[in-house]
Design a protein around this nucleic acid. Structure first.
Length: 241
DNA sequence: GCGACAG
DNA sequence: ATCTTGTCGC
């Protein structure tokens, strides 16, 4: 039977047939792709005009569903110019270090539904601040070829000294003796966010972009908008089924 | 070996 | 991530 024409239910995408199934396979993919990350001059200079896209996902574990959102925001005005969503089957269990395999297929679908090419993608989570230097933001950047950064709400397993209390203060995020990202104070006296390079971006530029995207709240406008959009998409799906 | 551990 | 109301404060 084909779906009834009047059915407003959005299609739920299945997991790609070639998607990794085991942790060993997923780790091997990371090892295979990590060399493609570029960390040179910023593809989008902080303050330059352009469109930044925030991506985020929300889960319905009971139904095995993940909803993704891609929200395009004008870098200068921070006004939302476009938003897309997608719903798919959860493609991987949550394993620290393998988060990308849980989110990427559905995020890619949402990104592909945008009518424009982003100048920068902002992810929830990490890029190079990752056990194998290939977190979600790097993975998404390499697969799309787009400049990407990761802005996480928690320091994961990395160490840092609290940055100064003023907006714009930052301190290194360390994996041993290697600086893999930075703790950035986006609002005075508020817990910092944890920024790392995803792809085609320097750490300095990633931090500068994060600050420009967070003029009023702790989290970047991209993250806030994408979070709201994917939650609404998931709620709408539940309501319509 | 055990615990910690982005979302 | 998710479970979840009202409430304090700018």
């Amino acid at each position: 039977m084909s779906p009834s024409p009047e059915s407003p239910c959005p299609p739920v995408a299945d997991v790609p047939a070639d998607w990794p199934t085991t942790e060993a396979e997923a780790t091997a993919v990371q090892e295979m792709l990590r060399g493609r990350v570029t960390q040179s001059s910023a593809a989008v200079e902080p303050g330059a005009p352009g469109v930044v896209v925030g991506v985020d996902v929300a889960y319905d574990d009971a139904r095995d569903l993940v909803a993704a959102a891609a929200v395009a925001i004008d870098l200068h005005s921070l006004v939302v110019v476009e938003a897309t969503t997608a719903v798919g089957r959860i493609s991987f269990p949550y394993v620290p270090g393998l988060l990308a395999f849980r989110e990427i297929p559905t995020v890619l679908t949402a990104l592909g539904r945008l009518s424009r090419t982003p100048d920068l993608v902002v992810c929830d989570g990490y890029g190079l601040a990752h056990p194998r230097r290939f977190g979600l933001a790097s993975h998404l950047g390499v697969l799309t070829g787009l400049p990407a950064i990761g802005v996480a709400k928690n320091p994961f397993a990395f160490r840092y000294a609290p940055p100064g209390e003023r907006r714009g203060d930052s301190s290194p995020l360390w994996d041993g003796d290697e600086e893999v990202g930075r703790a950035v104070r986006t609002q005075p006296g508020v817990k910092p966010v944890f920024v790392s390079v995803g792809h085609r971006m320097t750490l300095d530029a990633a931090c500068a972009h994060t600050l420009l995207l967070s003029p009023r709240f702790r989290l970047p406008e991209t993250t806030r908008a994408a979070d709201g959009a994917c939650r609404r998409a998931l709620a709408a799906l539940a309501a319509g089924s």
